[in-house]
Amino acid sequence: MLVAGAAAVAGIALVRAARSAPPNPDGWFAVTVETEPSRLTGPDRPDELARLSERHEVRIKPAPGGRGSEIAVREADGETRDRVRKLKQLLETGEVLLVDQQPEGHRTPLGRVGVPAFRHLTRKGVR
């Protein structure tokens, strides 16, 4: 089923790709975070945000309607998008949620390969 799921994701991605213009390699990956922009700028900004800024253009602006701040990162590959999501989790909840050591029953050989592969695919994207 996991394989079917991955195939479905790939299928939907293909349909999306066929329907729309190809992703802009200079595009931005953006998240909205429940925090004031002042917490994300200046010398006291989170270390991870500083590290992201070393390799990427990062844009911070207030979100409308009192929804905190928008963090946009340019040229974000899958790894970078995962880091941005984790930064949002850390800023909002104080921790990065872990799920990789869950109780599980007997995995088939396909499952032993498929579960980590699926996690990689759904965290770091199919684009």
């Binding site: 479905a8 991605a13 949002k88 699926f118 759904t122 199919v126």
Partner: peptide
């Protein structure tokens, strides 16, 4: 919730 699903890619795509 924005933060509780560590595997968001599938639903983001679909």
């Amino acid at each position: 919730c924005d933060n509780s699903n560590p595997n968001p890619g599938f639903l983001e795509t679909s």
